[in-house]
Amino acid sequence: MKKVLLLLFLILFAVQVNAQFEDRFNDLSENLQKGYSTPLATWTGTYLNSGGYYSASVSKIFGFKLSLVGMMIFIPDDQKTFKLSDGTETATFFGEKGAAVPETGGYVVYPPGINQTSIPTGIPQVALSTLGSEVMLRYIPAVDIEDVSFDLFGIGLKHSVSQYIPLLPVDIAVQIMYNKFSLEGPDLTIGTSNLAFNAHASRSFGLLTLYGGLQYESTSLDIEYVFTGTELGQVLDDDKIKVSLDGDNSVRLTLGAALRLAFLVLNADVNFGSQTAVVAGLNFEF
């Protein structure tokens, strides 16, 4: 469990994990886990559903893009705590301090969070386009670090709508994306799957392209861990329980700009949703 969380932090936050964090995490029942980890589910969706486009123009002949997308995701204050059944507020995954609540059996202490308001992350992707359609691929094969492994797969399909509307002053396209990420260790498995559908538009002014879009998305996060608490849940083999969470991300508005320098395109956009994401991309386009 410790190594899985360590890998998660190493990859996503580049910070050291604390073992008591994991101990308290394992004590959380299904209901408490939902309160604690839903912002994490939202974060994975905000992350994986970002960076899908920086232009609505799609090549009709042949196009190839290799992109390195970085992003900073901001966690709002109302996602840093959640309320327990008695109204006490305690930290979510991104919050700071866990509560200590006196109950019949003694004090119950809840896990602290990582106390982060902004999380950087990134993703590599390639895209091929022809005949007004583009296929985007994100792939990280299973990476093993000691007894923990993670992998990522994403695919997107974009189609130009404006190609059917001559003399339209802007390019318009629609896109659908599916991304999944999994992290597996001896005591903890985290898997997330994300689906997004957007319509976006862009217009070029010389080297500069302005773009924007509206995206509908959904995220589901599954956490399977060895439950060490006392409240009954859906117990699987070896005292493991599985909790399925839906992220709060459902709609986002994207506004951005791209600068085209020969085959190099630099882009940046802001995504307004349940969590705000600032995305920047380094793209090689042929």
């Binding site: 936050f13 050291q16 390195l68 970085g70 900073m72 950087p120 990134g122 590599p124």
Partner: peptide
């Protein structure tokens, strides 16, 4: 390398 775009996250 992607993370290197941003280096300003809150230090834990």
């Amino acid at each position: 390398a992607s993370f290197s775009f941003f280096n300003g996250c809150d230090e834990l």
